[in-house]
Design a protein around this nucleic acid. Structure first.
Lengths: 354, 354
DNA sequence: GTGAAAGCGCTAACAT
DNA sequence: ATGTTAGCGCTTTCAC
């Protein structure tokens, strides 16, 4: 059994110094690394350190100017697959760069968000990464702008990841991906299979991510000279339950369509089981596509055609650029590409039936 | 536009004091809360604070004895649905209790794990929660015991969440759930549907979670006087790919079975698509069950029968008990129940066919 | 090579 | 009610 010091209170550098018969500065020096210290003193100190199982208080070091930098990550709900993917990217890159990683869930509450940002500022986080879409209201811009300024004035930096950008001049970094482009490509693909009435299961009308995807849906139609029936675009949120509910209602109402494009793989999953519950077969009776390419998409049955979003990369990039910038650099904007991944959930329409 | 202080370096309490024409202690007092301060001074100070957008350095406060406590959460990969669920529980409860929440991914590397724990000790984290199963080797016990002692001697506490417990006397809290019981109930349910040859897609043979589930599988058989064919229990890991690969191999080998129980919903998902790819129907041709009850289980087709594990509760409990205990309390052991949730993926065997 | 002393940003005990 | 001083645990001049 390893012997441990029995004293309940953690030992300080002075305790170690005392036990080694040297001064605190000396202990600091041998622990610090490459400062000239005599071999024998070094050994004595190291032994004391080992015997007392001493670890320097990181907060004290931080305050003295040599701490491990910290990076904060605030999102809505770690449980969402795409959030989790980003979180993973952030976390990996942060530890690769030797940063600690604080995480907070807002549960979708904007008040929590600003509270967290305030805390992170108090923690002197090197950067705080805000993740997940939302409404682009003036209230949002003001609030976020305020956070950005306040962080910047404290030598930190705000990163918006998949979020509405602020106006020019704000000290933020925004990393986005091409919502509209992905939706455009996806819907073009569906249309190319001969579908004419494709249902769109969208998100909240004021949510910018939802808007981008909806724009893509519309644009793809118009590029073919089609004007989609307004009845076909529905609004809900990005959850599985929303997809399920919406799909059910549509089925009850007897709306006509041969394909459905969901704003999210989660929505698609809910819609899929609603379809199944109604005895419909995908893609034989109706085609279905999603958005996000979460890992589970390929294990749905049929495997879901969707658009891939490089979420993990997004997270990695967020920390890399945030940490690379000078705090007060004005707005910077990265846009990552998306691409559709074709699996088995959308089929060509039977021309005979038409 | 809100005016902000232009000075790039964050302001200190003394700067605020200077601007308000008072002493630092006074600023500290008005910010601190309920200490008697004259109304006019208070206003002056608050104005200065606002004008400078001042926030007290949390690290300095911490070192002075009044910091926001921090809690660390180290897991293998935030991307796994069950990990994410636990993380969510931990995070929610932590912020509810006013704690900050540090998170680290080990990517399955034990060395990273001890490094992280060491860092957390340096951060003076109130508790560190280690999550996720593993092998119960003596190396594991030694290493973990060492971490527990070291944390305890620093006034912190180690919590093992869904992990092999240490021997008695170690200053840890372990929170587990009933792996064996859940598997037992699930397999009993499958057996009760008339299945005699049920395939088990297990995890790594030395992984304690995998072992518990396998024991349940065996025990359920024996309780019915059955001795399962050893050929029917396979080993892989807990990933979707493992389930997919294993299922494929089994199908190629032409093994006979009417039901498969996967050690994990992820494994089940992989197995399900392999089954589908082979043109088999679930549950008409073969029944399938999983374990974990991740949110996606009900959107698989057919909806997956599985055993529910209260992961989120697990996380919440982990922080609650960790924070409630005195640091040096010896081992404490909580065991949460599991229960099977019946959906549509296991059917009764056709007695006619037999 | 090593110690004493000052300083990091804050709070708290002690004065007044 | 407010200022002064000491102290939290550490690093870093500045002496010797």
């Amino acid at each position: 059994m390893t012997r441990k010091s029995e004293d309940t209170s953690r030992s300080t550098i002075r305790d170690v110094a005392a036990r080694a018969g040297v001064s605190a500065s000396t202990v600091s020096r041998v622990l610090g690394g490459v400062y000239p210290v005599s071999a024998t003193t070094r050994t004595r100190v190291l032994r004391a350190v080992r015997e007392m199982d001493y670890v320097a208080d990181a907060r004290a070091k931080a305050i003295a100017g040599v701490g491990t930098p910290t990076l904060a990550f605030v999102l809505e709900d770690i449980t969402g697959p795409s959030f989790a993917l980003m979180a993973h990217g952030v976390e990996r890159e942060a530890t690769r760069l030797g940063h600690l990683c604080l995480v907070c869930s807002t549960e979708g509450d904007a008040r929590h968000e600003v509270e967290f940002v305030e805390m992170m500022r108090a923690q002197r986080a090197a950067a705080v990464i805000l993740v997940g879409g939302g409404a682009d209201t003036v209230e949002y811009r003001d609030r976020t702008r305020r956070m950005a300024d306040s962080l910047a004035s404290a030598g930190s930096r705000l990163v918006l990841c998949g979020r509405p950008p602020l106006g020019p001049g704000a000290p933020v970094t925004v990393i986005e991906y091409d919502n509209e482009g992905g939706a455009y490509a996806l819907v073009a693909h569906v249309l190319a299979q001969g579908h004419h009435r494709v249902l769109f299961l969208g998100g909240k009308p004021d949510h910018t991510t939802a808007q981008g995807r909806e724009r893509g849906y519309l644009a793809a139609h118009r590029a073919r000279g089609l004007e989609p029936d307004p009845e076909l675009v529905l609004h809900g949120d990005f959850t599985r339950d929303s997809g399920h509910r919406l799909m059910r209602q549509v089925l009850e109402r007897g709306l006509e369509f041969t394909a459905v494009v969901a704003a999210t793989d989660m929505v698609a999953a809910g819609a899929l089981t609603a379809l199944h519950e109604a005895g419909l077969s995908v893609p034989d009776d109706v085609s279905l596509a999603g958005y996000d390419d979460i890992p589970f998409a390929r294990d749905l049955h049929p495997a879901l055609t969707t658009v891939h979003v490089p979420y993990e990369e997004l997270g990695r990039l967020a920390v890399r650029t945030a940490l690379g910038r000078e705090p007060n650099t004005p707005d910077e904007h990265l846009l990552l590409g998306t691409h559709v991944v074709v699996r088995n959930s959308v089929a060509a329409v039977e021309e005979a039936a038409a």
